[in-house]
Design a protein around this nucleic acid. Structure first.
Lengths: 186, 186, 186, 186
DNA sequence: AATGAATGAGAGTTCATTCAT
DNA sequence: TATGAATGAACTCTCATTCAT
């Protein structure tokens, strides 16, 4: 048996980028397999269908962004505003590259209203993100208000990412971070 | 000659809602014609293809929201914070109903990256919205800063609408309005 | 009741030209009605369906070409070679104009093998033409050989018309006439 | 990997015959795929659309008839009149079988006037044929007159094939050969 | 007779998925 | 695992024809 031409990680990364760029309905199995350097039939050895692939892509993306972004919020070796700043910088990278956008937001928009079970993992992702951002605000605002601020910041980031995509202008994302830093008080 | 089964306005409204709910790629001509109470073939009597329909739907939506939302910003008989408040209330209605979401945002996400000419009308819509919101902030913040605040508010609203869609919770949109009112100073 | 916007003759002429240009399958009811300056629905007041229209178009064309072309062969006031020459000149006109081609040949090619009842009027047309040309050769070649020469000449003309269409070069048709004149002996 | 149900050659032959029988507009993708023993979707695995298929069918037909018909003209081991006779016999076979007709002529008639780029390969085919026939007449008539005779003979053959199709009488084609042999002088 | 609107049947094409080597 | 071939279902769009004023 030949070894796989592509690792699971590489495959998921490339598929995530493709979904992010084209949306769920706009992404064909051809586009996915080509992005992975496989033929369509070979691709099906890795995933039995488009939806189960998407599920894994969402989970993998959650995991990846959890480690490289959300985790920063809990790094007690840095001051809250330093963590927030670092998170903002990393967000800039994660939501750019290949195509501007947030996979979760993109999928939420065009795969919703018909496949509601896809919304659960997306909500979990956003909840996790909100929790991380909230954590930074607890010292200054208390549990309850921090939770609300976290949710608001997630919405702000998603809005900024969407506009960045539409205008082709990544800088819009940083605006959110700066406003949040001011609010936190550096 | 036989009377039309549906008026142009009614048709565009229903199609707009369908696109908003299912996205561009997720919307089939069958879905559109059924939404209008027509057969697929009859639908083509009104529009020659899906993309030209979308173009008209976008223009019509811009026009409609321009009149019912953006115009409020220029009603000098109200104080700025009253206008902002009214705009927020109307936004709540316009982006709900049938499906939570902003047509422009939805289309931008799943029809982008391939049909860049569709982005122009979407940007114009967002620019118009930002200009209206900016107008309210000029007295207090001056032209330049107001412009920036307008753009930020649009992003905030879009983010809130997206999260409202994902969580099925329309109240998220009001949060943006309240925050903006505080910023304006009532 | 309004008077018709178009006479029967004018309608048949325009439809004949359209069929000649686009072929039977390539001609749509839209093309036919537009050629007649009518809407599609109005067109159906004149003819109930495409095939019965074609039947009339073929009959009318036969009649028309019979009078302006075949009849020349029986004009005993001219010498045979003069009649042949005149027929050649008229053919040049009849098979050009609007589109190079012979309606009968065009229809035979793309409406055959499926609607064989359409072939009968086409054969009658060609038989009539062959008879006319044969008539010119009887004095010199006798009944039997003349009949064969008539059939051959029809084939020669049809071939020349086809090539004239393909190369966009009407002159090809005259070559047949000149060769026939030589054969007849002027 | 699964073996193809049909070879490229077989596919092109069957499609050529189908186009020849039904014309370009009269031939549906269903008819083509059925002729090849494939489903419509499978057919698209071989050719991406109807027009590119036609292009290949024309080129392949040119190639095939070039080898089995035109090449005879250049076989210097036979006397010119023997070559002409042999070409006539082969033509009889090539333009019969499955349906009487010349693919090039059929396509020229019903795919013309709108897709002029399809005419180029058809003209090349006819030019090649004319050149081959001309070659046989050079010894006796000289370059220039031979060229003209070649073109005339092609038109004669096309006319005869058309009439053979209309009357269902293949023998009409041989008449052209006999006349040409007499002209050449045996 | 004229016409804008409507429509069932199909045409060309794409897509997610399966087969067989 | 890899892959060229195959396919049913669905999708966008066209066409001949009918309806209703």
């Amino acid at each position: 048996m030949r070894p796989p031409k592509i690792s699971r990680d590489e495959l998921l990364l490339r598929c995530a980028n493709t979904f992010k760029r084209l949306g769920y309905h706009g992404t064909t199995m051809d586009a996915l397999s080509e992005a992975c350097g496989l033929t369509k039939a070979s691709f099906y050895h890795h995933y039995p269908n488009k939806e189960s692939l998407l599920r894994d892509v969402l989970a993998w993306t959650h995991e990846r962004i959890g480690q490289s972004l959300f985790s920063i919020a809990y790094d007690e070796s840095l001051a809250p505003h330093e963590r927030l700043s670092k998170m903002g910088r990393n967000a800039g990278k994660l939501f750019l590259g290949d195509a501007i956008g947030c996979l979760m937001g993109v999928v939420a928009v065009d795969a919703t209203y018909g496949k509601s079970e896809l919304m659960a993992p997306i909500r979990q992702f956003l909840d996790d993100w909100a929790r991380a951002l909230a954590h930074l605000h607890v010292p200054r605002f208390g549990e309850e208000e921090a939770a609300e601020l976290g949710r608001q910041l997630v919405a702000d980031y998603e809005g900024a990412i969407l506009l960045a995509r539409i205008y082709g202008d990544p800088a819009r994302i940083d605006v959110v971070t700066r406003r949040a830093l001011k609010q936190l008080g550096s």
